[in-house]
Write a protein that binds this DNA or RNA. Structure first.
Lengths: 220, 220
DNA sequence: CTCGTTTTGTTCCCGCGTTCACAAACTCCT
DNA sequence: AGGAGTTTGTGAACGCGGGAACAAAACGAG
């Protein structure tokens, strides 16, 4: 902590951070199509946001565009990737190799963004030795040594809700400081550890709420 | 549309709607533990939010608490469930039965919240007839008739990004008005259709950004 | 070189959401 | 019955994020 003047580290609003990966994906798509330059208007359309918002977001990173011209796709793509940190390699462990764990282990989107699954862990001994996505499932008790060996900072929880808090505690103790939680429960972690949660059921419930209101409107 | 006075339909802020399912889950956990009554402080702790925020959120639904006492767990649970709409049955179709589609089809959290998977669809003929989670995979072309037959309002997209827009278009045409999109791409839909997206890779990238900054701080 | 055109970067304003703080209301004990 | 103690519901202040609008900068034509 403490103030410093690392020039690359102005503080970027959280809402902007959440959109940068979307811009990055849009830029990759544009690059694949052979587009060399794009305006904020085009990129905003591809990312599904307002162009003023896009420009403001990018301005937090620096002045990477050219007035009257637009943005160089490859250059901007690299700058965003660097800012997010996906130019480096991030070792990741996945705990809980059920249906969801399988899907995550096989998900190609991780690999292509600099995330490398270094271990799959499960508490159930019957799963140990099983090979998923070319990686063999190991004992959850090995977490500590794996984290030390590979310098893992990011952990993914794909266990049932009942196990999630214990897994999180073990992850923190092992030195992991960023957790992506798919278990449908709130987990508590000490300060300095980031948690993001993805809850499929919650997303559906939000849709159901709006759907219910739409249907109520329709019959009125 | 148009203004009406359905007393149950004051407009609830979007941020509150997104938290109601979390409260509901916390209440179910409390009920399972045999708790009959809880204070806003306790419930807030279980849901991982500030107690003032919880009280304000609940106040949008009505005055379901008792001052000096707290909230009746079962009663509040029912009221929230009714407000979200999960007291009724929501038929759902899942399109794209790859790794993720498998996991979603088997996910028990849907069933327990009033969501019923009525069909699994895939464009690949080799998958047709395969049985996943007790439901057999059918041709994507059957979407329209299935939606009509079951009155499906909610669709889940679990296809690769390249197919997502086409699937969304077909869903909208079939009459689906709420879409949960797991494909890593922005999809465009007409007004009146709600889309929520879940992007695993984006969540990890957000964690990576913060992790990078923590590590930069650590060496300074 | 100068003017018109295009597009970025930024300023300003507004509205939503969060939090504090307190009044209203209910229970329990004496 | 009345007062002390609790806990809800809400009014008010504050800060963040979104969007419109504009000034600054680059390019091209003549």
């Amino acid at each position: 902590m403490s103030a410093r003047t690392t020039d690359s580290a102005r503080d970027i609003p959280e809402a902007t951070v959440a959109r940068l990966p979307v811009y990055l994906r849009a830029l990759i798509t544009l690059a694949d199509q052979g587009t060399a330059t794009c305006s904020s208007e085009e990129l905003a359309a591809a990312a599904g946001v307002n162009s003023a918002k896009l420009r403001k977001d990018l301005s937090y990173l620096g002045s990477y565009g050219t007035r009257g011209v637009g943005y160089d796709v490859d250059y901007l793509r690299y700058q965003i990737a660097r800012e997010i940190g996906v130019t480096q390699d991030w070792p990741v462990v996945i705990v809980g190799i059920g249906n969801l764990g399988h899907a995550l282990a096989n998900f190609s989107g991780f690999r292509s963004r600099g995330f490398r699954v270094v271990a799959l862990l499960d508490a159930d001994p019957r799963r140990h030795g099983e090979v998923v996505a070319g990686i063999d499932v190991r004992d959850f008790a090995d977490l500590g040594s794996i984290v030390r060996e590979h310098g893992v900072a990011i952990g993914v929880i794909a266990t049932p809700a009942s196990a999630a808090q214990d897994v999180a505690d073990s992850m923190v103790e092992a030195g992991i400081s960023s957790i992506l939680n798919f278990a449908p429960t709130v987990i508590a972690v000490p300060d300095g550890v980031d948690v993001r949660k993805v809850d499929l059921s919650i997303e559906l419930q939000i849709l159901a709420y709006h759907e219910q209101r739409k249907q109520a409107e329709a019959v009125s």
